[in-house]
Structure formats: C-alpha cells, structure tokens
C-alpha cells in the first residue's frame, strides 16, 4: 500500500492534525514504508483464530454504582487553557 501526500492530508484530517506541507511528502514515504512492513501479516493463515484484545483475556471489572469522587471542577479547570464561569471556552460552534 502506497500513500501519497493527498492521502496523508485526508488521514491527518481524520486525526484532526495539522501537518505542514513541507513534511507531508516525508510522512507519505514513511507511512508507505510502515504499511508495507505490516502488510506481511496478510500472508499469515489466521482461519478460525479468534482476535485477542486483552493479553490475559480478562473482561471489564464492574464496581457498585456508588459516588466515589467529589466534584473538583475548580481544581481541574485551573489547568485549562481558557475557562469562564466554570465553562471551558472554545471558538463559537453555533451561530
């Protein structure tokens, strides 16, 4: 699989990443090499093999539905780039 600069732009958009035009060609080449490298998996016969998501095959542990954390909004918002009246500020989304 070969990736060109246009496809890098599309993938970068999906990942919400600004990628400079001057490095997108290098990214295209690197991504192509990485994909070519992982494509050897395609030759492996995996018929009937169950996918493994968790190395110990454990399932999610459940806990009682009880409140165990206090509201610490001021503490967490103290490290936010921009807040006002307890809200996180972003550029206007709805006109």
């Amino acid at each position: 699989m070969s990736i060109d600069a246009d496809e890098v732009a599309q993938i970068a958009h999906l990942a919400r990443l600004a990628v400079n035009a001057e490095v997108s060609q290098a990214h295209a080449q690197n991504l192509s090499e990485i994909l070519a490298f992982v494509e050897r998996l395609g030759a492996v016969d995996t018929t009937g093999v169950e996918p493994l998501a968790h190395p110990l095959e454990m399932t999610q542990r459940l806990r009682p539905d009880e409140v165990c954390e206090d509201n610490q909004r001021e503490r967490f918002q103290a490290i936010a780039p921009l807040t006002e009246d307890g809200h996180y500020l972003v550029p206007r989304v709805i006109e």
């Binding site: 990942a15 990443l17 600004a18 990628v19």
Partner: peptide, 24 residues
C-alpha cells in the same frame, strides 16, 4: 473555529513521530 483549534493545537503540540503513529 473549533476544527482549527483541534488541528493546530495537536499539530503544534505533537512531534513528528507521534503524528506518524497517530496517522498509522
């Protein structure tokens, strides 16, 4: 706008290897 906020914050904040892996 919001998309520009996401894209440029991430584009400026992450180095090239991190971007590469996110894209892969």
């Amino acid at each position: 706008d919001l998309e520009d906020l996401y894209k440029r914050s991430r584009g400026e904040g992450f180095g090239e290897e991190v971007k590469r892996r996110i894209m892969v």
